[in-house]
Simulated scan of single mutants.
Amino acid sequence: MNPDHLFTLLRQTSKVILIVVVFALLLPLLLGFALSVPPGVVLGLISSTLLLQANAVFVGVAMGLRPAMILAVMTLVEVGAVLAIFETCDTFAIQSARVRAMLEKTEKKMQTMKYLSKYGVYTLLFLPVFPIIGLYSSVVIAWILQWDRHLSLLFITLGWIGICLVLMLMKIGVLKIVF
Rank of each mutant, 00 (worst) to 15 (best):
R66M: 14
K108V: 12
E87K: 06
S138V: 07
G120Q: 07
G64I: 10
T157L: 07
L18D: 03
S36W: 09
T112V: 11
T49G: 02
L125Q: 06
L151E: 12
L154F: 14
S36F: 15
G134H: 04
L154R: 09
I133V: 15
A54L: 14
C164R: 11
W143V: 05
V21Q: 00
P39W: 05
M110T: 06
L65A: 04
L151T: 13
V20G: 03
V37C: 04
L27Y: 00
K109M: 13
A34P: 01
M168F: 07
L6K: 10
T75S: 14
V16I: 15
Q12W: 11
G32Y: 01
A62P: 01
N2T: 11
M113R: 15
T13P: 14
S96K: 00
T157R: 03
P38T: 02
G64F: 09
Q12D: 15
R149H: 05
V174W: 09
A62K: 10
K108L: 14
L6N: 11
L169T: 07
L35S: 14
G134I: 01
V37H: 08
V129P: 05
L51H: 09
L151V: 10
G80L: 03
P38D: 01
L27W: 03
G173F: 05
I177T: 12
I156L: 13
Q53K: 14
A24M: 01
L65Y: 02
L167K: 14
F155M: 06
P3G: 06
V99M: 06
L31F: 12
L151P: 05
D90K: 15
W160L: 04
R98M: 05
L154Y: 13
A56S: 14
I141M: 11
A56T: 04
V37D: 02
P67G: 13
S36P: 03
F7W: 08
L125V: 02
L167S: 08
I46D: 00
L9I: 14
S36E: 09
S152N: 06
M170I: 09
S96A: 03
L158T: 07
M102E: 12
L30R: 00
L124Q: 10
V20N: 02
A54V: 12
V99D: 00
Y115E: 15
P131M: 09
M63H: 09
D148M: 07
P67H: 05
V37L: 12
I46N: 01
Y115T: 15
G44V: 00
M170F: 12
P28H: 02
L151C: 00
I133K: 02
V59S: 09
P39A: 01
G173M: 04
H5I: 10
S152E: 04
F155H: 12
F179I: 10
D90Q: 08
L31P: 05
Q12T: 13
L103R: 12
V59G: 02
L175Q: 03
F86W: 02
D148P: 07
H5L: 15
L165V: 11
P67V: 08
V20H: 11
I132V: 09
K105V: 05
I161K: 14
A84H: 12
V82I: 15
F126N: 11
L52A: 08
P128S: 05
L116S: 10
M74N: 08
S14R: 04
K118A: 10
L71F: 13
L29Y: 08
V99N: 03
